[in-house]
């Protein structure tokens, strides 16, 4: 039984790694990181980017009109938080409007978009799902910590336009595919 467990774990890690490598580097630097939903998950993505030595700026509330001219890739840390929205002093509707306008403008500017969800199952639910539905179809790549995709919502939203979805077992494992996405 122990052997089987080890085998399964090894294979699972291997699958993550294979998936990560399967996506060719497509994103240019520098990147701009923002939050979609104002959860604290942005902090984790910051650490992952820092570890991967990817040059980035972070602005959780950046608006379409405020997209820096030099930014080539937009990273969306998706996850809704009532507490975060409250602390930022914005409503869900305002955040949704900002998100849609931001994605639209990024596309107009030819930016690549990476969607990342590192909050796991705890960062799902009505609020988060509304933001996930807006972000995923707009992404060039989706990275998700696996227990956040129990119901397959990310794969379902990505399937129509064949957006690659990379699932990783743990937050720490999200760094590798994120780094691999950058040229």
């Amino acid at each position: 039984m122990r052997r089987i467990t080890v085998l399964i774990a090894t294979l699972a890690v291997a699958v993550s790694a294979v998936s990560a490598q399967a996506t060719a580097a497509f994103a240019d630097r520098p990147a701009l990181l923002t939050s979609i939903g104002q959860s604290a998950d942005l902090e984790m993505v910051k650490v992952l980017l820092g570890r991967a030595k990817i040059q980035f700026a972070s602005d959780p509330l950046v608006k379409a009109a405020g997209l820096p001219a030099g930014a080539r890739t937009l990273i969306l840390s998706v996850g809704g938080s009532s507490k975060g929205l409250g602390a930022a002093g914005i409503s869900t509707d305002e955040e949704m409007a900002r998100s849609k306008a931001l994605i639209k403008r990024a596309r107009e500017l030819g930016m690549k978009i990476i969607v990342i969800h590192v909050g796991g199952e705890a960062r799902r639910g009505t609020l988060s799902d509304a933001f996930i539905e807006v972000c995923v179809p707009a992404g060039d790549l989706v990275i998700v910590v696996a227990d956040g995709d129990k119901d397959g919502i990310f794969e379902k939203l990505a399937a129509p336009t064949r957006i690659p979805v990379i699932k990783v077992a743990k937050i720490t494992a999200a760094g590798a595919p994120l780094a691999a996405a950058f040229k």
Binding site: I8, G120, K167, A169
Partner: peptide
């Protein structure tokens, strides 16, 4: 198939222990 099954099992194991409460 084995890889997919393994991944599913691994993910399920994580999910099974991450419910709150």
């Amino acid at each position: 198939k084995v890889i997919i099954a393994s991944l599913l099992i691994a993910v399920t194991a994580v999910l099974a222990t991450s419910q709150n409460p």
